[in-house]
Amino acid sequence: MTSSTTVTVLRYAAFTSHPGGGNPAGVVLDAAPLDEEQMLAIAAEVGYSETAFLTSRDEQRRRFTLRYFSPLAEVAFCGHATVAAAVALAGRIGPGDLVFDTPAGEIGVETVADGQGAVRATLTSVPTRSRPASAAEVGAALSALRWDAADLDPALPPHVAFAGNEHLVLAAGSRARLADLNYDFAALTGVMETYGWTTVHLVWRESDDRFHARDPFPVGGVTEDPATGAAAAAFGGYLRTLGLAPAAGAITIRQGEDMGRPSELRVEVSPHDARMRVTGHAVPIAE
Rank of each mutant, 00 (worst) to 15 (best):
A113D: 15
L152Q: 11
V283I: 11
Q60E: 15
T252F: 11
F15N: 05
R254F: 13
G243N: 11
P24Q: 10
S17V: 01
A245R: 00
V7I: 14
E224S: 12
D30G: 08
T16C: 12
A31K: 05
A245L: 02
T16D: 09
A245P: 06
T241P: 03
V126C: 07
R57I: 00
L239K: 02
A250S: 15
A104K: 00
V28L: 08
M192K: 02
D97E: 15
G21E: 10
T16S: 14
S130W: 08
L34Y: 11
G105K: 00
H159I: 03
T82I: 08
S143C: 08
G26D: 06
G26E: 05
F185I: 09
T124V: 10
W147G: 00
A52S: 15
R261C: 11
A231T: 03
P71R: 04
A84H: 12
D114R: 04
A84V: 10
V203I: 14
R254Q: 13
G105R: 01
V283D: 12
E37T: 14
A141Y: 11
A171Q: 07
S207P: 10
G105M: 02
A233E: 01
A85Y: 12
G196R: 08
A230G: 07
G256Y: 14
R261Y: 13
Q38L: 10
P95V: 14
N165I: 00
E287L: 13
R177C: 12
A144K: 01
A44V: 01
I285C: 12
P95N: 04
L54G: 03
L242D: 03
E268L: 07
R275N: 03
R67Q: 15
A121T: 02
D30A: 13
P24D: 06
